[in-house]
């Protein structure tokens, strides 16, 4: 498919979804223009709110890259949430006392590494089961989300609890900020650098090429000498690594404590980012920026107009469904230009 055609489909999908969204807003008695103003424009108007956007941008981009790795091998990693939670746990364990006190400033990198490791481990379960038993990674990653939620819930209610609320104590070391006037931190830079790395790996290296071959046709990959099992496993593990890092940054750059719901909706929104950005590095950045704006804006929108924040996930899902519709229709038109009524 031509890239202009693809871009057109993306833009039309966003427009169509927002159109349907405005019907929903109208039906609920609010003014769509006003709602979309709070949702899309307002977050971009001040340094402060941009900082808020960055709080969504970093995890969205990281999870989006992670999910893209899996998608390239035609695996669906729906376990972003669980992997984020485990990544957050890794960071927390290194950040709170006693370990955090010992490590001092080093608790940040060590915590990130442990978070990545935890993310890998949690995703590797699904990867292993898929490779060894051909178990659907879709269902397994999803079930692992529920299990991870309960594990984290147990940890913050009992062993890690500090104080009355079910949450851990504050970690010692935060991600350094980029500017003092907003919440934006170095996580953004790391995420952007990793996007570049992702692009290079997928397009320019043997590993990336083989991963794409696997996703394009498993049989062709076997034919071409790719150790298929190992690559499936690797795709899942890398996917988990990025989600784990997102979790670690969620703790060290945002909440500072482990608590239930620290993963937010990022696991699923990451999938939308990957689809919307059509797995392309630049696309992923734009898609996560767009989605981050929506997410940050929806909070204001809820306050000002009463439209609940869940409206964003309706919008996101609609966008992707429209993209799929557009792709299907355009490829169909290409195929049977004349054909009967098929």
């Amino acid at each position: 498919m031509k890239s202009i055609q693809k871009l057109l489909i993306l833009l039309l999908s966003v427009a169509a979804a927002m159109l349907i969204g405005s019907l929903l807003i109208l039906a609920s008695g609010a003014n769509p223009l006003e709602a979309y103003y709070y949702m899309v424009i307002r977050p971009l108007t001040s340094v402060n709110s941009l900082g808020e956007v960055s709080m969504y941008f970093t995890p969205l981009l990281l999870v989006g890259i992670g999910v893209s790795f899996a998608f390239h091998a035609r695996l669906s990693n729906l376990g972003g949430e669980g992997q984020i939670l485990f990544g957050a746990l890794g960071m927390t364990l290194m950040g709170i006392s006693p370990v955090g006190d010992v490590l001092g400033i080093f608790s940040l990198p060590v915590g990130c590494l442990l978070g990545i490791l935890f993310g890998i481990l949690w995703a590797a379960i699904a990867g292993f089961l898929r490779v060894r038993f051909k178990t659907s990674e879709i269902v397994v990653t999803l079930m692992l989300n529920y299990i991870a939620q309960q594990i984290i819930s147990y940890l913050v209610f009992f062993p890690l609890r500090s104080g009355a609320e079910p949450q851990s104590e504050k970690i010692a070391c935060a991600l350094p900020k980029l500017s003092s006037s907003s919440r934006i931190n170095w996580g953004v830079v790391v995420a952007l650098l990793l996007t570049v790395a992702y692009g290079v790996i997928m397009k320019k290296t043997r590993f990336g090429f083989r991963l794409r071959t696997l996703g394009g046709s498993e049989k062709a990959a076997v034919y071409s000498g790719v150790p298929v099992g190992r690559y499936y496993f690797a795709a899942m593990a890398i996917s988990g690594a990025f989600c784990g890092l997102a979790g670690a940054m969620q703790i060290s750059g945002n909440t500072m404590r482990l608590m239930e719901g620290v993963a937010g909706d990022f696991g699923f929104s990451g999938i939308v980012v990957a689809m919307l950005g059509s797995l392309h590095p630049v696309g992923l950045v734009i898609a996560s920026l767009f989605m981050a704006v929506l997410s940050a804006g929806s909070v204001t929108m809820q306050v000002k107009t009463g439209i609940p924040t869940s409206f964003t996930s309706v919008l996101e899902a609609l966008i992707v469904l429209f993209i799929l519709l557009g792709m299907a229709l355009s490829s169909r038109r290409g195929k049977h230009r004349k054909g009967g009524k098929a």
Binding site: F268, S313, A328
Partner: peptide, 27 residues
């Protein structure tokens, strides 16, 4: 009919359903 990947459609639909019912419930 459009022959799209069943699992991706399913996932997106689930996100949509969760968001939409949540939205309606709140509204």
């Amino acid at each position: 009919w459009l022959r799209q990947d069943q699992s991706i459609i399913g996932i997106m639909f689930n996100i949509f359903a969760a968001g939409f019912t949540n939205f309606l419930n709140r509204m």
